[in-house]
Design a protein around this nucleic acid. Structure first.
Lengths: 148, 148
DNA sequence: GCCCCATTCCGGAAAATTTGCGGCCGGGCA
DNA sequence: TGCCCGGCCGCAAATTTTCCGGAATGGGGC
């Protein structure tokens, strides 16, 4: 994990389709050397995947919501996590410090869909309390992974 | 933007290195047809980019922080947005509903680095008030784009 | 019904890229 | 000095992408 590896990681973060020759030219290595490093970066888990960043509006998911969740005292936290990990509309879910236990980010087709999501959370018996905020506009956004 | 396009988008979200032949086999099209559709998806902006998802810990950024920001009344909001867009440590920034104006997500090398970020925000004169929460653990996370 | 146009598909050839070697070089070490 | 090992290079084979022309498909207009 030297500077060249970091530069390769940054280049591929920007354009995962860059050819080995292009990368090699940028970092001063042959295609073979770049290929070796790339293989090692993937093996070591430095590169977790190559992913297409999909425009959420283009697939009918224009709404971004943030849901603060306080888990119910009796809730099965493992099951909650498993459920969040499985839902394709959940784009992020973190256990956080502060008054809430989880911060869940979702992408949805409409405000109705956001409401449906909250209903599911409640009827699942997981949450004691929640608060939802919507994104009005987005300045910076990580790549969106469309999971169908 | 039919079902096949959506399936291609989903497949490439999962693995941007899948060959046209593999995708073709999955959706029942020839490589040429898949190539046509891929080109159009990119042209139309449905696919915004192909990106390598980097493990943040592997590049020395183990800390995830969420900063809720209330902008100072006199703050230049455009400049604030431009600054957020430019900072490589800012992984997300949304204008949101609720008591705060912005939600800023960052990746940092340490708690000290988080503090430094907050100091910069304050000394920039942008924020009236802020609250920071840290991620204790992560259940779901979008791809991380390493920007150097 | 018929023509025309646009769109999307296909197969195949050419170009580009990736992959899989063997060999070379330089640093660490006994 | 001599050996070993990691990392690099160039080259050739295999794979993939790109770039055509031409064939189906599905409306619109007459």
């Amino acid at each position: 994990m030297d500077d060249i590896d970091r530069k390769i990681a940054a280049l591929l973060s920007d354009d995962a389709r860059a050819s080995l020759a292009q990368i090699g030219a940028a970092v001063g290595l042959s295609t073979s050397a770049v290929n070796d490093r790339l293989r090692r970066l993937i093996e070591r888990g430095v590169i977790r995947r190559m992913s297409a960043d999909i425009a959420p509006e283009a697939v009918g998911l224009p709404v971004t919501g943030f849901v603060w969740v306080a888990l119910a005292p009796a809730a099965d936290e493992g099951a909650f996590r498993a459920a969040m990990a499985q839902l394709p509309r959940v784009t992020a879910c973190h256990h956080v410090t502060g008054p809430w236990s989880y911060l869940v980010q979702i992408r949805a087709a409409s405000l109705d869909a956001v409401e449906d999501f909250l209903s599911e959370l409640k009827s699942g018996g997981w949450i004691a309390r929640s608060e939802t905020m919507l994104a009005l506009s987005t300045v910076v956004e990580p790549p969106f992974r469309y999971r169908g």
